[in-house]
């Protein structure tokens, strides 16, 4: 493939694909809406002279739009956090839940479910415990001096397992008639209960997280060369890593708090993006943002459209993610040797 062709394909995949998916996704769902109606409805707030029915307006703006935005936000957040973690931990097999964010958030959500089942509380506790678990992981690694990345990763494994045990505790005591299924369903990951309110609540952590990672994307390249080299090039590796972890944790916690635990995206999207644009984080970070958004929206459309009962999206991302992962492995991805 010559370089000009490659640029065209990259542009189509990273710029045109999300735009097409965005509009196409309004067409999918139980109530059929024609493409013309979709365009008219979306433009109607700007051009009030366009006449559309109230039903269609409600479906487009209150049901389908929040869900499309949620898929974009969650997909891009997880992919971005995965790419950043892989860079700063110098390891292509790392995913965003490395430091315990998913199980922490899962515990927060499970706790909220047995306490009250209020959607607001579930989202808040999931977000807060996601951040708490990563903070504990980080503080433990700082308490053990001179351990560096290895201690950080291992304490992440420990804290993850700890919160997993707490989730099991809650499942054990939860009422098996209604609470237990709700917890299990939440942990599977789904975008079906997303509302505009939930989206508004994650706006700040989401935007702050993305800005941090976008600003530090070149420094991630240098950090990937190792701490000593980064320091001799004038960076403070500990401080920059902390900032990046903070950005990733804001993003992942925000994502998990509205969608539950959706696996595999944070692992495979960084690899796909790296295959398309290469390892330079200056381009890779925006590329994984776009690719993650498209991927989750596509999978969410499949989960809504293929069979009448909606499949939890976390199951689908795993079912689709594993073969993709194996395919990438077969391509003899040079980094994994």
């Amino acid at each position: 493939m010559d370089s000009q062709n490659k640029e065209v394909i990259t542009f189509l995949l990273l710029v045109i694909l999300p735009i097409i998916l965005f509009f196409a996704s309004f067409l999918i769902g139980r109530y059929p809406i024609s493409p013309v109606d979709v365009v008219k409805t979306i433009l109607s707030p700007i051009f009030p002279q366009l006449k559309v029915s109230q039903t269609i307006t409600t479906i487009v703006f209150e049901i389908r739009l929040p869900r499309i935005i949620a898929a974009f936000a969650v997909g891009s957040a997880l992919a971005l956090a995965g790419t950043s973690f892989q860079s700063i931990f110098k390891n292509p097999l790392v995913s965003p839940d490395l430091l315990g964010v998913s199980n922490g958030a899962g515990f927060g959500a499970a706790l909220a479910i047995i306490l009250s089942s209020s959607n607001f509380l579930i989202q808040i506790l999931a977000f807060v415990f996601g951040i708490i678990s990563v903070s504990i992981t980080y503080l433990i690694s700082r308490a053990y001096k001179a351990g560096g990345i290895l201690v950080l990763v291992l304490s992440g494994v420990a804290i993850s397992a700890f919160f997993n045990a707490l989730i099991s505790c809650i499942k054990f005591v939860a009422d098996p008639q209604d609470k237990l299924p709700e917890i299990i369903y939440w942990l599977m990951g789904s975008l079906s209960s997303v509302t505009i309110d939930k989206l508004i609540m994650i706006t700040i952590p989401f935007v702050v997280g993305i800005i941090i990672l976008l600003l530090l994307r070149w420094q991630m390249n240098i950090l990937a060369m190792g701490d000593e080299e980064a320091q001799s090039l004038g960076l403070n590796p500990t401080r920059i890593r902390l900032l990046i972890i903070a950005g990733c944790t804001l993003l992942t916690s925000a994502a998990v708090s509205i969608s539950g635990i959706i696996g595999w995206i944070g692992l495979i999207i960084p690899h796909m993006a790296r295959m398309i644009v290469g390892p330079d984080n200056r381009i890779l970070i925006p590329a994984s943002l776009s690719l993650g958004a498209s991927f989750l929206l596509l999978v969410d459309n499949i989960s809504r459209a293929v069979i009448p009962i909606e499949i939890p999206i976390g199951i689908l991302t795993s079912v689709i993610g594993v073969p993709i992962f194996l395919y990438l492995l077969k391509r003899g991805y040079s980094e994994w040797s």
Binding site: S87, K90, G226, S232, L233, G234, L235, R274
Partner: peptide
């Protein structure tokens, strides 16, 4: 001096380098 100030005056090449991502 901060790491940044040191790095403007002192350059360093370590004995060994563990290869990272395939940067250009």
């Amino acid at each position: 001096l901060s790491f940044r100030e040191i790095s403007k005056s002192i350059g360093y090449i370590p004995q060994s380098h563990i290869p990272s991502f395939p940067f250009k």
